[in-house]
Simulated scan of single mutants.
Amino acid sequence: MRISVQDAPFDLGQEAETFAAGSTADGAVVTFTGVVRDIAGGLDAMEIEHYPGMTESAIRKIAEEAQARWNLGDVLVIHRFGRLAPGERIMMVATAARHRKDAFEAAEYLMDYLKSRAPFWKKEITSAGTEWVAAKDEDEEALSRW
């Protein structure tokens, strides 16, 4: 398991390749990458804040819960912080399992819980000013299936 909260960009291809090469016992590797969206066409940047130590611990707990629930060989979570422009990668989740169902479900679980429970604070910066991103009902509703 590797959890990384970092300000530096990551190489998606290299991270996926390294992760997939980590185990020959797993027949399924699922990856997901989140990208900063420019929803209204006016986003200059998104600033992401977190509390070092606390954030990594919370993500590790979520990842350990996924490992306990599904038969996973490995888990990778990368989440960035700092100032990010539209189109930049914000996070990556990868799961490896013997079978695809476990890998897919665990990846979805991690994404849902990271979106709503990981201690990150996001601020959108536009030409009109800045605004903190509020929690969304649909993100909370997504947790109900787990």
Rank of each mutant, 00 (worst) to 15 (best):
R69Q: 15
H50C: 07
R100L: 06
I90Y: 06
N71K: 13
L84R: 00
I90Q: 15
K61W: 05
D102M: 08
I48S: 03
R83P: 06
A103T: 05
A94F: 04
H99Q: 15
A68R: 15
E49P: 12
E56C: 13
W70A: 02
A97G: 00
A68L: 14
N71F: 02
T55F: 07
A68Y: 04
R98W: 01
K101M: 02
A58D: 12
I90A: 14
R100G: 09
A63I: 11
K61P: 10
E65G: 01
I78W: 05
R83E: 09
E65I: 00
E88T: 11
E49G: 09
T95S: 11
E65Q: 05
K101S: 10
F104N: 09
G53F: 10
R100T: 10
A85M: 14
I59M: 10
G82K: 07
D102V: 08
R60G: 07
A66N: 04
P86Y: 06
L76H: 00
M92E: 07
I62E: 11
E49W: 12
Y51W: 14
A96K: 06
G87A: 04
E105M: 12
H99L: 07
A63M: 07
A66H: 05
R69C: 11
G82T: 08
R60H: 10
G82I: 10
R60V: 12
G82N: 08
F81P: 01
E64P: 03
A96I: 06
E105S: 14
L72I: 08
G87V: 08
V75M: 11
L72C: 10
D102C: 07
H99V: 09
H50R: 10
T95G: 06
D74E: 15
R83C: 12
F104I: 13
R60M: 06
G73R: 00
A85V: 09
R89W: 08
K61Q: 15
Q67H: 11
K101A: 11
A85F: 12
N71I: 03
M92C: 11
V93N: 02
I59F: 08
F81Q: 06
R98Y: 00
P86Q: 04
H79T: 02
M91Q: 13
A68V: 03
L76F: 01
I62V: 07
A103N: 04
G73L: 01
R60Q: 14
P86F: 07
R60I: 13
V75R: 12
A97H: 00
I90N: 05
R80G: 12
W70S: 07
G53A: 09
I90L: 14
G53Y: 06
L76Q: 00
E64D: 15
